[in-house]
């Protein structure tokens, strides 16, 4: 049985089909990227998988449970117990310190444990920033706090919506490296991104367009990339592609802005 299965899922706003007959299976431990132009329904899909929204039509099975039929209350419980969320805008509670932000997640899940929260921050390389408020952290650091928060309760599945969208090259690599570690520990990862660089480190890339699933690429080299020996080569490749990538990034961002306005 797959960990996650979407069966003919629709999300309809008025006459706009934000998701249009999407079917998808994600196995336990898999690392999947989702790409697609702005407005293609990526965030909509993530919200549904993340139990924050319900499909208009279709079935969503998470761990065998049909979450499209659950009440808001039990969706909250599923979200709390099974899912770790990472967002583009590094949402942190602005009056809580880094370590407190991580502890909030523990607080809702089970028991706050400052020691464990500090370990999670150490893991993302922020041990010395634990007592800082979000406003005293850089964007990359904030995003790493979000990752620490997402992984603190050992979720089965981590959903990241453009986790590197606002990060520079160095921080992007830190985040990818953390994902790689999580993957190796068996965590299921679903990552929305505009950045092909980020997408292609996954095992599989899914492309959405106008709410439809239009393409699916399997990464043949995944095993090789993922081994630690492959890392330097991977970094080199990153540098080569740098110029191309920045252009792409600019392009996608500007279309995104146009669309939103």
């Amino acid at each position: 049985m797959s960990l996650l299965e979407l069966k003919n899922v629709y999300k309809i706003y008025g006459d706009l089909h934000a998701l249009d007959d999407v079917s998808l299976k994600v196995e336990k431990g898999e690392w999947v990227s989702i790409m697609g132009p702005s407005g293609s329904g990526k965030s909509t899909m993530m919200n549904i998988i993340g139990c924050m929204d319900k499909p208009s039509l279709g079935q969503v099975l998470l761990d065998g449970m049909d979450i499209s039929k659950e009440s808001d209350k039990s969706l909250t419980n599923i979200r709390r117990d099974k899912i770790g969320l990472i967002f583009q805008q590094f949402h942190l509670v602005n009056y809580l310190t880094a370590v407190e932000n991580v502890m909030v997640s523990q607080y809702y899940h089970s028991m706050p444990d400052e020691k464990e929260a500090l370990e999670a921050l150490e893991r993302v390389g922020l041990a010395d920033r634990a007592k800082h408020l979000p406003s005293q952290l850089s964007g990359g650091e904030q995003q790493r706090v979000c990752i620490a928060r997402a992984l603190i309760n050992h979720p089965e599945i981590i959903l990241a919506d453009e986790p590197t969208g606002n990060l520079d090259e160095a921080n992007e690599n830190i985040v990818i490296e953390l994902f790689r570690q999580l993957h190796n520990e068996g965590t299921t990862l679903i990552v929305v991104t505009h950045d092909p660089e980020v997408a292609e480190v996954a095992q599989r890339t899914i492309v959405l367009d106008h709410g439809k699933l239009v393409r699916e690429d399997i990464n043949e080299n995944f095993e090789a990339q993922n081994s630690s020996a492959a890392k330097p080569a991977e970094n080199k490749k990153t540098e080569e592609k740098k110029a191309e990538k920045t252009e792409e990034k600019k392009a996608s961002k500007s279309t995104g802005k146009k669309k939103k306005k």
Binding site: T76, R80, H91, V104, S105, Y108, H109, R149
Partner: peptide
């Protein structure tokens, strides 16, 4: 912030 708290599992 409320949305965030709910997203990471806060009940009503």
């Amino acid at each position: 912030e409320i949305g965030l708290r709910k997203a990471i599992g806060a009940s009503d």
